[in-house]
Amino acid sequence: MKFDEGKVLLLLSGILTGVVITSFIFSTSFKQTKFITYNEYKNMNNEVNSLKLEIKGLTNDYEILTKKLRKYQRSDNKDKSINDTIKKELDEVKLFYGLTPVKGPGIIVIIDDRHFSLGDNDEDLLMRITHNYDLLSMVNELRNAGAEAIAINGERITANTAITCEGPITMINNRYVVPPFEITAIGNPDAFEYSLSVNESYYNYLKDMRRLKISFKKMDKVIIPEAYVGTSYKDERLK
């Protein structure tokens, strides 16, 4: 048979029409044509018109409600993201202020008084005990070495912490602490080790000049408790 472009096109259009016809017949339900009188037609037409109006109204309502819903969802999302951000910020602030216990790699420095020996004069006496400013200087030194959190005998050092001398005893955060003092700090252990072991460090001053019992231990994991927030802490004068 000779190949004829026109015949092929005719065949294809025939196939297309056949497919459309059959798929249309299959996808729509068969309803026989019904003959109605003019009055019936009028009534039904009225019904159709009222139903169409109803549909129009309902579609309008639907659109308005959908718009509203979308608006609510959008503002809800916004509120949620703001809440989340604020919560995250609060957590961060708590973390850095010291209101949450933290853990991480760090160092433990243990300082103890030198024990009493015969023949010590007053100056020696002062030299061999650990003073509040010793602890303050150690805290400063650790901070300089990049400490992110510090505690002495479980007392978290925060921005509001006072380390004071109360005669025979030291007070941190309005609570008494006694030797041996265990200073825990979180940070880079190697940095701590370096800054403590340089000759000019306060650590070496305590060790060599004051000859206190002082040692440090690098730790893979130290746990630092949250700060004690006593009833004395008030913010009523802060503005």
Binding site: L11, S13, G14, I15, V19, I21, T22
Partner: peptide
Amino acid sequence: IGLLIGIILG
């Protein structure tokens, strides 16, 4: 013929 094929295909 095309119509018939199309109907059967459909």
